[in-house]
């Protein structure tokens, strides 16, 4: 009986303590800057074009093959009369978020720091009714950083 009394006192002490739950959709937990949601592409604000040159490094390194990359000649390269130093640039880019396993390898292999893991809540709240809606195309991948929504954290 003493053991049961001790159990009941334990629960009573918990009764007086503050609940730990958060009312999620209204109140978000602050997420750390290193948080990894899904990979997105970064936007070179200085030249106003993506960092990504479409070099296929991430596509080859991806363990689950969730990426599709197509490159093209950069119309804004200096040789074409533009102000960009990138000879090639990304043409089309798809990432299937339904396949991605968020291993961070694409970020590590990128030579141009053009891809990063989303560290905002928008990157987590992606529920859709159709799986095909999880396949993100280039504008969707770029929009987050283009609007300046990302928190700064760049992995070594």
């Amino acid at each position: 009986m003493r053991g049961i009394a001790k159990s009941m006192l334990t629960t009573l002490s918990a009764f007086t303590r503050r609940p730990v739950t958060r009312e999620y959709p209204e109140r978000h937990r602050p997420i750390p800057e290193r948080d990894r949601a899904f990979p997105i592409l970064l936007w070179d604000q200085g030249i106003d074009e993506p960092f990504c040159t479409g070099c296929h490094a991430c596509e080859r390194a991806c363990p689950v093959e969730c990426m599709t990359v197509l490159m093209k000649d950069n119309p804004r390269h200096t040789s074409q009369g533009g102000n960009s130093s990138r000879r090639k640039i990304i043409d089309k880019f798809w990432i299937d978020y339904g396949r991605c396993m968020r291993c961070n390898i694409c970020v590590e292999v990128c030579n141009f720091d053009a891809i990063a893991m989303n560290n905002t809540w928008q990157g987590h709240e992606l529920s859709v009714y159709d799986r095909s809606d999880l396949v993100m195309d280039l504008p969707q991948l770029l929009s987050q950083h283009r609007q300046g929504n990302l928190k700064e954290w760049v992995a070594e």
Partner: peptide
């Protein structure tokens, strides 16, 4: 999560050491 960025699938150890500080 603060260290590795993920709550469950950390993918933080690498052959030779750690992925980042």
């Amino acid at each position: 999560e603060e260290i590795t960025g993920d709550r469950l699938m950390y993918a933080y150890f690498r052959p030779g050491g750690l992925a980042w500080e």
